Amino acid sequence: MISGQSGWAAFGIIAVASLLFLAILHGVTMAIGHRIGRYNVVDVAWGLGFVGVAWLALILGPGDGLRRWLLAVLITVWGLRLSWHMYVKSAGKGEDPRYEELLSRGAGRDGESDPAGGHDLALVARKIFATQGISQWFVSLPIQVSAVVGPTHGVWFVVLVAGVALWVLGFGFEAVGDAQLRRFKADPANKGAIMDRGLWSWTRHPNYFGDSSMWWGLWLIAASSWPGVLTVLSPVAMTYFLVFATGARLLEQSMSKRPGYPEYQQRTSYFLPRPPRRTGSSVP
Results as ranks from 00 to 15, higher is better:
residue 120 D to A: 10
residue 120 D to G: 04
residue 121 L to F: 09
residue 125 A to R: 12
residue 125 A to F: 08
residue 126 R to K: 13
residue 126 R to S: 09
residue 126 R to M: 09
residue 129 F to A: 00
residue 130 A to F: 14
residue 130 A to S: 13
residue 130 A to I: 12
residue 132 Q to H: 06
residue 133 G to H: 02
residue 134 I to V: 11
residue 135 S to Q: 11
residue 136 Q to E: 06
residue 136 Q to F: 06
residue 137 W to M: 03
residue 137 W to E: 04
residue 137 W to R: 02
residue 139 V to E: 03
residue 140 S to K: 04
residue 141 L to N: 01
residue 141 L to Y: 03
residue 143 I to Q: 04
residue 145 V to E: 14
residue 146 S to D: 08
residue 149 V to P: 05
residue 149 V to H: 07
residue 150 G to Q: 04
residue 151 P to S: 15
residue 151 P to Y: 15
residue 155 V to M: 13
residue 156 W to Q: 15
residue 158 V to F: 10
residue 161 V to T: 05
residue 163 G to S: 08
residue 163 G to H: 06
residue 163 G to D: 11
residue 164 V to G: 12
residue 164 V to W: 12
residue 165 A to M: 12
residue 172 G to N: 06
residue 172 G to L: 04
residue 173 F to Q: 09
residue 173 F to H: 09
residue 176 V to C: 10
residue 177 G to M: 09
residue 178 D to S: 02
residue 181 L to C: 00
residue 182 R to G: 09
residue 183 R to N: 09
residue 185 K to S: 04
residue 185 K to N: 05
residue 186 A to E: 04
residue 188 P to Q: 01
residue 191 K to F: 12
residue 192 G to D: 07
residue 193 A to P: 00
residue 193 A to L: 05
residue 193 A to E: 11
residue 197 R to A: 12
residue 198 G to K: 02
residue 198 G to Q: 02
residue 201 S to T: 03
residue 202 W to A: 02
residue 202 W to K: 00
residue 206 P to W: 12
residue 206 P to R: 09
residue 207 N to C: 03
residue 207 N to W: 07
residue 208 Y to P: 02
residue 209 F to K: 05
residue 212 S to C: 11
residue 212 S to E: 14
residue 212 S to F: 07
residue 213 S to R: 07
residue 213 S to H: 07
residue 214 M to E: 14
